[in-house]
Design a binder for these strands. Structure first.
Lengths: 93, 93
DNA sequence: ATATTTGGTTTATAATGTAAACTAGTTTAC
DNA sequence: GTAAACTAGTTTACATTATAAACCAAATAT
């Protein structure tokens, strides 16, 4: 089989990575907005993507509130490209 | 979220459907060959695809041996097309 | 003061995936 | 003719994954 990257072959994680592929640092709130996912799920999936090195997460404070921001890594970009190309192969696109 | 069809958003099921999309009736053996999946997994996923109406399964005998053949349904074709277009949207393709 | 909101994390449960074991019979080799 | 190996799958038990609900600490609004 093609063996699609199983980390990326999940809708929310794919949404996150694929959104981050085209932008700079994005905060948690923005990701909730664009993915329309629950905060819990988003938190879990961001952590998963970070653990495998597909995105960098930095935590700070904006005013008084905690602020979590994410940015795709080079490894993440490469993995996404590979995933997309494997998927295209599988779908004959 | 895009809400990808969760039945199709699985590698083996996607392989099966996407292979069947371009051919006529195909037997189990051929599917083992092209998907390189285990027979157990293939059996489970074919049944799942059949249950939701994405493919038709007919069982007969070829010589003395049981023969299981699959064919994509119109519903399956439509679902695949929708899935692919949603996926493209998600990936900005 | 206390209720609500912000910005998340943790956890318990449900859903899914898969390999291994099994069924039921057939063919081959001894 | 019978034991071993093969065909063509199915079932089951376990492991992984996904997700919503509950929770937390601090801030702000009433």
């Amino acid at each position: 089989m093609a063996k699609l990257n199983s980390i990326l072959h999940q809708e929310l994680r794919l949404s996150i990575i694929s959104f981050l592929a085209n932008v700079e640092w994005v905060d948690f709130k923005k990701l909730v907005e664009v993915t329309e996912a629950s905060k819990g799920n988003l938190s879990v999936q961001i952590t998963k993507l970070q653990k495998v090195g597909y995105l960098e997460v930095r935590k700070s404070f904006k005013g008084n509130y905690p602020l979590t921001e994410c940015c795709i890594t080079e490894e993440g970009k490469t993995a996404l490209e590979t995933y997309v190309s494997e998927l295209k192969k599988l779908l004959n696109l």
